[in-house]
Design a protein around this nucleic acid. Structure first.
Lengths: 212, 212
DNA sequence: GACTGTGAAGCCATTCACAGCT
DNA sequence: AGCTGTGAATGGCTTCACAGTC
């Protein structure tokens, strides 16, 4: 299999294409061109074709792409042709919201357990998903073959949680704590920093103002 | 004024540097080198210096940077030397979590109102922040001089909410709905797609597997 | 001696433009 | 005729390496 360094931007876009194709499929649309996809997701036709070209030839010249077929290919590329077991550590506001977020299940992510050290929360459930003490993390991750861990605890605890996840065998982590955490090289780590996103907006707002 | 296209990646990193410098300042550390910053945030020294060089000369050769001073500069660059008024539309799990998120206030973002059309929620407060019906959005945004709107509603309603925000004069939007929305060119729009972040992880997990 | 600031080089991603199918 | 797939060109970001300063 050819694997010549795929840009991360390409993966992000594939994910967006897939969501768009799913919408189209629901509407009963069966065929689409790269130009129409670009229009729908806000990109360029050449970009769409380049992104797909990393993985194969999915279209028909002169015709375009079959919506459902292309979506199946992308879903397979992204590894979404099976369900993934996810745990969330932190049952505060953010952790609770993520646990109940419908967009995860729709894409094949099953949140199977939540962990928190607040004894008032342990034993309760969120949407039917049980809350365990963090001390049970290792045991449950191993028993349930968990693939992905989400960190939704305050910044000072994030590194400890990451360590516990790695220790238990998880090798993909999504971190919502606004702090840099370190993990072994072989563990996939992504950070979502909510404040950073607002700060990019304010930077751009200030830029606009300076143009006058 | 010099404004040579700053890479967005640079802005993201500046935001992270600032957070790190704030931590150091609290610990009483007064001086730091580009190498130490790089170490702390997971980057390269040259990158740190290049990022800062877009905006001026903040360090002393042979010595490094004054922590507090550099942080003040970055805060000003990002437009965080004043508070920003923020509203959130959608008082579901995610909207509630964002409304109560401490990381926003710490960086100068004041969530002053939440909007939702659920009559069971209207009139209540979240952390002292009132929930209004969406019909009041225009009035309140104008009266309170709101700068930024956050969309935390289900995908099908996101475009309507964005339209209402634009109509009311907001020109920076942070969208959490997993759908492409369109706004006039002069409005700053950023998207945070929670599922996409997990999908990048699964793509990378699959890649690793294929390496064997 | 140590560390910043920066032109130049290298690398990566996007856009162009056209050959190749249907 | 229409649209994909792709090498080539372009543009942009990152890394290198060193002159400049303390």
């Amino acid at each position: 299999m050819k694997t010549l360094k795929i840009p991360e931007a390409t993966i992000i876009r594939l994910s967006v294409y897939s969501r768009y194709l799913t919408q189209l499929d629901k509407k009963g649309i069966t065929n689409i061109s790269s130009g129409e996809i670009a229009e729908g997701v806000g990109g360029s036709p050449a970009q769409v074709r380049k992104d797909l070209a990393y993985f194969g030839e999915f279209g028909t010249r002169g015709v375009g792409y079959n919506v459902r077929d292309l979506n199946q290919h992308i879903i397979r590329i992204l590894g979404l042709n099976k369900n993934w077991q996810v745990i969330i550590v932190g049952a505060g506001n953010l952790g609770s919201a993520l646990t109940q977020y419908k967009g995860f299940r729709e894409r094949g992510f099953d949140v199977i357990a939540v962990f928190d050290n607040d004894i008032n929360k342990v034993g309760l459930t969120l949407n039917g998903i049980p809350i365990y003490p963090v001390s049970k993390l290792n045991e449950i991750v191993k028993k349930k073959q968990v693939d992905i861990g989400i960190i939704a605890v305050p910044a000072p605890y994030a590194q400890d949680v990451a360590d516990a996840m790695v220790e238990s065998g998880i090798n993909a982590i999504l971190n919502f704590a606004p702090v840099v955490i370190s993990v072994p090289e072989e563990v996939e780590l992504r950070n979502v920093d909510l404040a950073v996103n607002l700060e990019i907006l304010t930077f751009n707002l200030e830029l606009q103002k300076d143009k006058n």
